[in-house]
Amino acid sequence: MSPPPEQDRRLGVVKPEPEPMIKLKVLDNEGRRVFHTMRMSDKLQAVMDAYYAKAPDVTYGSGTFMFDGSIRLRGSETPAEHGLQDDDVIDSYEDL
């Protein structure tokens, strides 16, 4: 299931970083800011999980994560797919 590089990481094998880490910020309606650092090829679910962890009043799995005012993000996608860069902001809001 998981590709070899990921396995290596889990096993703690030190290898030259194949890709840079990016820091993403989630900003929600309440003004909460949640930062998360991840690889371009990691699933965006990670940053969403980080947000849900910091926002206990938001039902897990609910709400919308959007980038650049138009791109809806899904947990199964990666930052690379949408061209997200370091310090990009993800808007999050609860279902209307």
Binding site: L27, D28, N29, G31, T64, M66, G69, D91, Y93, L96
Partner: peptide
């Protein structure tokens, strides 16, 4: 669309 409205509203408050 409604999403941008929500962000505008947030920006208005914050």
């Amino acid at each position: 669309n409604p999403f941008i409205t929500v962000i505008l509203k947030r920006d208005g408050k914050l």
